[in-house]
């Protein structure tokens, strides 16, 4: 091994979630990474509240705007706070994350989709208009 090369430094910067090497000068981007994350997260949070209070987004589009901002902020947290990267030591973590996201998406969208259909089916079958909203 011929001492630290560019590759070695690259590996140290590409740390897995929470990996904070003691031998590196400053792990995972260090203070800069956390400051960037805090700034971006505060910006996105502020924007979420602003979208709600100030009518600069078309009314019916507000829910979608809020969801987009939330997904963006989750990404910021993953990268700058949890240090999930595409580095070599991180492949397993990224694959596990992808699988977790898949399961969450199945649970969420599956439940919403199926229950929505069930509610609509029940409405047509039995309930007159007044009783909709009573126990499903």
């Amino acid at each position: 091994m011929s001492g630290p090369s560019g590759t070695e430094q690259g590996d140290a910067a590409d740390a897995p979630p929470g990996e904070e090497r003691l031998d590196a000068r400053e792990f995972g981007g260090g203070l800069k990474s956390y400051l960037t994350g805090l700034l971006l997260a505060a910006l996105l949070t502020g924007l979420s509240f602003l979208v709600l209070d100030v009518p600069f987004v078309w009314g019916p589009a507000v829910p979608m705007a809020l969801i987009v901002l939330a997904v963006a902020q989750m990404g910021v947290h993953l990268v700058f706070f949890l240090h999930v990267t595409t580095g070599p030591d991180d492949t397993n973590n990224v694959l596990a994350l992808a699988f977790g996201v898949l399961v969450c998406a199945l649970v969420l969208f599956g439940s919403i989709w199926i229950m929505d259909h069930l509610a609509r089916g029940t409405m047509v079958e039995a309930a007159p208009a007044e009783e909709v909203g009573a126990p499903r």
Binding site: N93, F99, G100, S111
Partner: peptide, 29 residues
């Protein structure tokens, strides 16, 4: 060891987030 422990705990966290996904789904419904 640090990488292995981090990976194991990451798996636990993802299972915890899946638990929250179930509660989110119940809330959405």
């Amino acid at each position: 060891k640090r990488t292995v422990v981090g990976y194991g705990f990451w798996i636990y966290l993802l299972s915890d987030i899946i638990l929250f996904a179930g509660f989110f789904a119940a809330y959405a419904v």
